[in-house]
């Protein structure tokens, strides 16, 4: 038996409590790329947070819903998914209602890493020779200069190029990105907030470590001994985590490795709000405002589509290690 946690101070709470306590107007938030906390994101919309800055290497569907709902008015990202086609998001990006700074998948991940490690900047060769380095882009009026005010009141650049003092090579300097709040949906956690997630994790671990506040929702809350007999799966320990939400299907319609697969039927439906404002209202009314908890959302989903669609995405033949890894020392 593994030892139990030294002290236990449960961080378990509901989605509503977690968002109420820890997400504030004006915050910079990370809300996942591959381990997307849809339930928590919908709760942010229900609680009508405003002026959020959504950061992430790829701001997928959940982040774009925050923009569409008027909760987010700016973002720093390398990708916004297929939400643009001449619809509301494209409109907002063009007219400046949604301000943004363009990065890439690697550069955003490096920015989280820099913040997580307490580095003042991080060098990369990405963007060398490209138009990201032109003045027009660096000083774009839809950019986030207002988020880059230094303590002395001057404006920090978005990117800078310098020569390495060691080799003379040119390199692009990226600023650290430190979210106020980072959220993911994971496979399992314990009530102390030890978080285990697996599968392709994209930038999530770095965003969690970079953030001031970490909120996770989990498919399962497990005893601490489950975590502490397999600690290699932990992506962030409880002492860095503020809130844990037990939320089965909290990652739907995205996939959760070992639990359920991407729900392509729902994504087709969920693409609708990005087509025009009326469809957006309809979607939010039904699936966000009309389903105040994830359990309610799941019930609504089953009512609307029958059990078949939901059952179809559930993992029925999970992969388990052919030879479980041993650990231990005596």
């Amino acid at each position: 038996m593994a030892p139990s946690a030294r002290r236990s101070r449960s961080k378990l709470m509901t989605e509503a409590e977690a968002v109420e306590r820890f997400v504030h107007d004006g915050d910079t938030i990370y809300c996942g790329f591959t381990v997307v906390p849809y339930g928590l994101t919908f709760e942010i919309i229900r609680q009508n947070r405003r002026r959020l800055n959504v950061v992430g290497s790829s701001n997928v569907f959940s982040a774009m819903l925050l923009a569409l709902a008027g909760c987010a008015d700016r973002m720093e990202t390398g990708y916004v998914g297929g939400t643009l086609t001449n619809g509301p998001i494209n409109e907002m990006m063009k007219d400046g209602r949604l301000r943004f700074e363009d990065y890439s998948n690697l550069t955003m991940t490096l920015r989280f890493m820099a913040a997580a490690l307490g580095m003042p900047f991080v060098p990369t060769n990405s963007f060398l020779g490209t138009d990201y380095l032109t003045q027009e882009v660096l000083e774009h009026e839809h950019g986030l200069a207002s988020d880059r005010i230094r303590p002395d009141g001057s404006v920090a650049p978005k990117l800078a190029v310098m020569e390495s003092p060691f080799t003379g090579e040119k390199t692009v300097l990226l600023s650290p990105c430190r979210p106020n709040v980072a959220m993911i949906h994971c496979q399992r956690a314990d009530e102390d907030g030890n978080v285990q997630a697996w599968g392709p994790l994209a930038d999530s671990k770095w965003a969690l470590w970079a953030a001031d506040i970490v909120i996770v929702s989990a498919e399962e809350i497990v005893p601490s001994s489950v975590i502490r007999t397999d600690p290699g799966r932990t992506v962030i320990p409880g002492f860095r985590v503020s809130a844990v939400v037990e939320n089965p299907l909290g990652g739907h319609p995205g996939p959760v490795s070992g639990y359920y697969y991407r729900d392509k039927h729902f994504f087709a439906l969920a693409g609708q709000p990005f087509k025009d404002w009326d469809s957006a209202t309809e979607f939010f009314d039904k699936w966000v405002y009309g389903a105040p908890t994830r359990a309610e959302y799941v019930r609504k989903y089953r009512d609307a589509f029958g059990d078949e669609l939901m059952d179809d995405i559930m993992v029925k033949n999970p992969i388990v290690p052919e030879q479980p890894a041993k650990s231990g020392w005596r």
Binding site: S57, G78, T83, T124, S126, T130
Partner: peptide, 15 residues
């Protein structure tokens, strides 16, 4: 028109 974005494309071109 804006497209979905560069993702890792810019990083691949660099490296």
């Amino acid at each position: 028109r804006r497209f979905p974005g560069t993702g890792g494309n810019a990083d691949g071109g660099a490296s």
